[in-house]
Nucleic acid binder design. Structure first.
Lengths: 346, 346
DNA sequence: GTGAAAGCGCTAACAG
DNA sequence: CTGTTAGCGCTTTCAC
C-alpha cells in the first residue's frame, strides 16, 4: 500500500490545521461552512481515506464487531450471519467472523482476540447455559449480545441482553403437532442439554407429553448434542425396540436428517411409518423429496434484532436494564409428519 | 473496556524502558535473556494485552484479512469460509466477512472499506472475468488472491494469483458422464457467462458435445446466471418442447435444484425420464431422496490454498511471478443421472 | 545490551 | 471560529 494522503496533507493544502480538517470531515461544528466545503472538496480531490487504526487508537472505537458461532459451515448460521453482516455494515461496522468449533476453549481464545482487537461489541451464538466465558465478559463490562442461546442462573439475571426463540413454545408446538396427528409414542431427540435451547425445548416437550397423557418412556428422551450422527445412532436403537416410537421430535433439522437416515435405512417410510419434525428451518429441509416439517426460530430476525441491540449498546443508547427479546417461532408444515395425508385427528 | 496495562506500565514495573519491553515481548534480540524472562513474567502477571490499533498504526500491519463473497447465505460459500477462517486464524489473522450481494457496486464499496481498514490482504471469490475492481486493486498494488473465479484478458495475464477448479475439466466430465450413460440430447444450464467459471464450463461442454457428435440445438445452452429460479423457468420451457432434452448439465447445484423442481412438477421422474448433474457438491444434494450427482470443485481445498498463498504474499515470501493453482475436480456419482440403474453404455 | 526520542494518523482539549 | 499542543500505545531509529 502506497503513501496515503493524511489530514495533515489536506490541512497544508487548504492552509488550515489538521484539527480543522478532522472536524470538517467528521461533520462536527467548529469550522465555518465555507472552509468545511473547501476542505471536503480537497479531501475528495486528493483521494483522502481515513486511517481506521489511527482513529481507533485515539477514539477507542474500532467500528468492528465480532460474531462468534460454532462453525459457519453449519447451515444454521449462514442465514443469520448474512443478516448480521448486512445490518452491521449499514451502520458502518465491519464483521469479524469467529468459529469456535464447539469448543469452550476456542470460544475463550476467540473472545480474547476480539478483545485485543478492540472490537466495539460482540454477538455470541454459542453460549452455554452456564458459560464461564460469558461470565467473564460481564465482569469485564464488555459490550455483547447473546443470540440463539442465552445463559441462565442467578448470576446472569438482568445482566445480559439476548435475542432468542421462544424455546418452550418450540417444544410445545412440536409435541402438539404430533399429538394432534394422532401419535401416542413420541421420541424426543434433544440437543446439548447444557444449552438453554435444548433444556427449554426438552422441558416443554416433556410437559406437553404429560399434559396430553401420552405414553412416556424415559428412553424416549435422548440427548444427542445437536449431532446428526448421534441422532442417527439413537434412532437406529429406538426403531429396533418392539414398541418403537411412531414420531420423533428432533431439536434441530440436522438431527432430524440423522433420524431420517436411520428410518429410511431400516426400510420404514416417512411419514407413513414414522413422523418427523425438526427445528431451525434449514434450507435443506425444504427440498422436494425431503419435505421436513420444522419449526422456524426465525434466524434472520434473530440476527437483525441482536445486531440492532448491540449497535444501540455500543453507541451508548439503551442504558439501564437489559433487553431480552423472545421471538415467537413458526410451525412450518411440510409432509414429514403426514399432515397433508390425514390432517389433524384431534 | 477498562484501563489496560501498556508496555509503559510493564517497563515501569520492571525498571526498564518501554522499548525493552516491546523487544522482549516480540522476541527480538536486543535485550538480555534475563530481563526478557522478567519482562515476560511481569506481562503475564499484569495481564498485559497488546493493542492492535497502536501496533497497526506504526507497523502498517493489521493482521486482518478480508473475505469477499456474494453472500454467506449462499450454501456454496460457508464450507470455504470455514476453511479460510480456520487457516487465517492459525496464522494469527482475523477474518472480515464481506457480502457483495452479487453487486459490483457493493464489491467496490466493500473493497474500499477493507482498504481503509488497512487489511493486510483480501481473498475474493466474486471476481467477474473482466472486473474493474480487480483491475484497480492491481494498479494499487493491493495484496489479494482470487478464489473460485479468476479474471481473464491480457491485462490480468501474470498479474493475479488465483486458486480455481479446472472448469474446463468440469464441463468435459459432466458431458462425458451423460454421454456414456447414453444421452443424446443434453441441455447446458449455464451460470453467469461473465464469470470464468461459467465461460470455461460452457466452452468445454460444447466442445465435448461436438466431439461426441451429439445433437446440438443452440436453445439447449441457456444462461441462467447461477440463479435457481432462472434455471427452473428455463427447464420448464425446455421440457415443453416436443423434442426435449433427456439430460441437464447444470453449472451449479442450485440451478440443478431449480431444474429438478421443474422436472418433478411436470410429472417426469429423475433419473428415469431426465438425468441431472450439478456442480459444487453442496451438502443439500447429498440428502437421501435428492441424491444429486455433482462435480466437486473442492471448496475447502480452494479456501485453504488461497489463504495459504495470501499469507505467503502478505509476509513477503512468494515474490515474483504469480501463482495460479488449478484444482482437479471430482465427479461424485449419486443417482440423479441413473448410473446405478444402467451403468455406462459406452 | 539498554534507554531516549521521534513519530505513525488521528482527535480532544485547550488557547487565541 | 480557528490553530496549537498533547497524546493514544506501540515500534523504530539512534545514541550511549
Amino acid at each position: 500500500m502506497q503513501r496515503k494522503t493524511t489530514i495533515k496533507d489536506i490541512g497544508r493544502a487548504a492552509g488550515v490545521s489538521p484539527t480543522a480538517v478532522s472536524m470538517a470531515l467528521n461533520d462536527r461544528r467548529g469550522v465555518s461552512p465555507d472552509t468545511r466545503r473547501r476542505i471536503k472538496a480537497l479531501a475528495v480531490e486528493m483521494g483522502y481515506r481515513p486511517n481506521y487504526a489511527a482513529r481507533s487508537l485515539v477514539s477507542c472505537k474500532s467500528y468492528l464487531i465480532g460474531f462468534v458461532i460454532n462453525s459457519i459451515a453449519d447451515p444454521f448460521y449462514p442465514e443469520m450471519a448474512q443478516k448480521v453482516e448486512e445490518t452491521a455494515n449499514a451502520a458502518g461496522y465491519s464483521l469479524l467472523l469467529c468459529n469456535t468449533q464447539r469448543s469452550l476453549g476456542r470460544e475463550k481464545a476467540v473472545l480474547e482476540v476480539l478483545h485485543d482487537r478492540g472490537v466495539d461489541g460482540v454477538i455470541i451464538a454459542t453460549a452455554m447455559a452456564d458459560d464461564a466465558n460469558i461470565r467473564h465478559l460481564i465482569e469485564d463490562g464488555f459490550c455483547f449480545v447473546l443470540v440463539n442461546r442465552h445463559c441462565s442462573g442467578a448470576f446472569f439475571e438482568n445482566r445480559i441482553d439476548y435475542v432468542v426463540a421462544d424455546n418452550e413454545a418450540i417444544g410445545r408446538m412440536a409435541i402438539r403437532h404430533l399429538y394432534r396427528l394422532g401419535h401416542e409414542r413420541i421420541a424426543v431427540i434433544a440437543g446439548d442439554l447444557n444449552t438453554t435451547t435444548a433444556m427449554l425445548r426438552t422441558r416443554a416437550a416433556v410437559a406437553a407429553l404429560e399434559k396430553y397423557g401420552l405414553d412416556r418412556d424415559e428412553r424416549w428422551v435422548v440427548e444427542c448434542h445437536y449431532r446428526r450422527d448421534a441422532a442417527r445412532t439413537a434412532a437406529v436403537e429406538l426403531l429396533a425396540c418392539n414398541k418403537r416410537p411412531t414420531a420423533f421430535f428432533c431439536q434441530d433439522d440436522f438431527m432430524a436428517f440423522g433420524v431420517r437416515d436411520a428410518v429410511l435405512e431400516s426400510g420404514l417410510q416417512i411419514p407413513r411409518d414414522v413422523a418427523l419434525i425438526g427445528v431451525d428451518d434449514v434450507e435443506m429441509g425444504a427440498l422436494r423429496g425431503v419435505d421436513l416439517s420444522t419449526i422456524s426460530p426465525r434466524k434472520s430476525e434473530m440476527g437483525f434484532t441482536a445486531t440492532r441491540i448491540l449497535i444501540d449498546k455500543m453507541q451508548g443508547r439503551q442504558i439501564g436494564k437489559s433487553r431480552n427479546v423472545v421471538l415467537t417461532p413458526e410451525l412450518i408444515v411440510r409432509t414429514s409428519c403426514g399432515y397433508s395425508l390425514k390432517g389433524y385427528r384431534r
